[in-house]
Amino acid sequence: MAHHPSLTFRLDSQSGLAPYRQLVDQVRLAVRTGLLRDGDQLPSVREVVTQITINPNTVHRAYRELEHQGIVEGRAGLGTFITLHLSVAPDAADHGTFEQALHDLVINARRAGLDEETIRELMRTALRHDGNVRS
């Protein structure tokens, strides 16, 4: 395994999401899109704090959460590795289908005269409602 950090994190201070949640989401996304695969190593906490300005506790917290979700596994003295015991990643075809459907949706919305801001707002509302249903 070439030793590049397997993933470069970024933080969005405007997202309203706790920084640890942002890291968790970024790892999940990387797994879902195939950027990270079974057996890949996540950057060490020290690598992350050298890469971006972040509290090491936040990185630990995110890795613990990912471990709890069954996406990664901490191996003592070695690091944190992706383990896909849970099928968190829908298969690639599935992923493509959703992407296509969303793409079509955006095109239809634009044809109907909605601007980008309105589309974003509708999407946010939909996600928020979904969040309420789930919680």
Binding site: R46, V49, T50, T53, I54, N55, P56, N57
Partner: peptide, 13 residues
């Protein structure tokens, strides 16, 4: 940013 990272490295170590 360099200063804050210096500080965070120390916290990590």
């Amino acid at each position: 940013e360099d200063l804050l990272r210096l500080l965070m490295r120390q916290v990590a170590d």
